[in-house]
Amino acid sequence: MKSTKKVVVLLSAGLDSTVNVYEAIKHHHEVVLALTFNYGQRAAKKEMEASAKIAAHLNIPHKIVDLPWFKDFNKSSLLVEDQEVPTGARVAIDDLEKSEETKKSVWVPNRNGIFLNIAAAFAEALGAHAVIPGFNAEEAATFPDNSKEFMDASTKAFRYSTSNHVTVGCYTVHMKKPDIVRLGQGLKIPWELIWPCYFSGDKWCGQCESCQRSKRAFASAGVDVKHLFKE
């Protein structure tokens, strides 16, 4: 990622976005805004609470952007209550074919495209030259809007749609989850502040795809966060 002084980060409070905001600060960038989106997702309450705590912990500006019209898409089990989110044995994070099927359930139309465009507008307005999402190579295998190719395409588009040519950069885009956890350990991230779960329960459910990936990543990195998962 190109060095820049002022950045806007997309902070959902998940593993990837949290590591990225910490890494941006480590690289002495000025985080002029951390953006959290409330688009009617099941985990909205927890994501907003966790993101606010992380921003306060880091002493960076934080804004929640409400996007209630995402519900009008009437698609994705993350948004529509009468659709079931795949959990447990229905999720197979190492089975590409099965992951493609479960992706169809949780896919939100153009979510990251919309998020990056909103972030780029804030970046331009605030004099920042980069936006930083939380992408990773592991999920990019089935979610192409987590990929380096998508970031590069967005940067190219922003050359036309932002006067200061906002770029998109991400510290974890080439990394898999265990390595992201290891990076976070080096940054001394308090893991109890993050929220990687698709649901808004008292603890991380441990059964949704996001939790299963997180659970494996922490175990692989030798980090004990069992107390944060629902038993």
Rank of each mutant, 00 (worst) to 15 (best):
Ala52Phe: 10
Lys53Tyr: 10
Ile54Arg: 03
Ala56Met: 05
Ile60Glu: 10
His62Ser: 10
His62Tyr: 14
Lys63Glu: 15
Ile64Gly: 00
Val65Ala: 02
Trp69Tyr: 13
Trp69Leu: 15
Trp69Met: 14
Lys71Val: 14
Lys71Ala: 15
Asn74Glu: 15
Leu78Phe: 08
Leu79Ile: 13
Val80Ile: 15
Val80Ser: 02
Gln83Lys: 11
Gln83Asn: 03
Glu84Ser: 07
Glu84Ile: 15
Glu84His: 05
Val85Cys: 04
Val85Pro: 01
Val85Tyr: 01
Pro86Ile: 12
Pro86Lys: 03
Ala89Lys: 12
Val91Glu: 08
Ala92Cys: 12
Ala92Thr: 08
Ile93Ala: 05
Ile93Arg: 01
Ile93Lys: 02
Asp95Ile: 07
Asp95Glu: 07
Asp95Gly: 04
Leu96Tyr: 03
Lys98Gly: 01
Ser99Trp: 01
Ser99Cys: 09
Glu101Ser: 00
Thr102Glu: 06
Lys103Asn: 14
Ser105His: 12
Val106Ala: 05
Trp107His: 01
Val108His: 04
Val108Phe: 10
Pro109Ile: 13
Arg111Pro: 06
Arg111Ser: 06
Gly113Trp: 14
Gly113Thr: 13
Ile114Tyr: 08
Ile114Gln: 00
Ile114Thr: 12
Leu116Ser: 04
Ile118Pro: 02
Ile118Glu: 00
Ala120Arg: 03
Ala121Asp: 04
Ala121Thr: 12
Phe122Ile: 13
Leu126Glu: 04
Gly127Lys: 07
His129Trp: 06
Ala130Val: 08
Pro133Asp: 05
Gly134Thr: 06
Gly134Glu: 08
Phe135Asp: 03
Ala137Ser: 12
Ala137Tyr: 06
Glu138Ser: 13
Thr142Cys: 04
Phe143Pro: 00
Pro144Met: 14
Ser147Gln: 08
Lys148Gln: 15
Glu149Thr: 13
Phe150Trp: 12
Met151Phe: 13
Met151Val: 09
Met151Leu: 15
Ser154Asn: 04
Ser154Ala: 15
Thr155Met: 05
Ala157Tyr: 08
Ala157Gly: 02
Phe158Glu: 03
Arg159Thr: 12
Ser161Gly: 05
Ser161Lys: 00
Thr162Asp: 05
Ser163Asp: 08
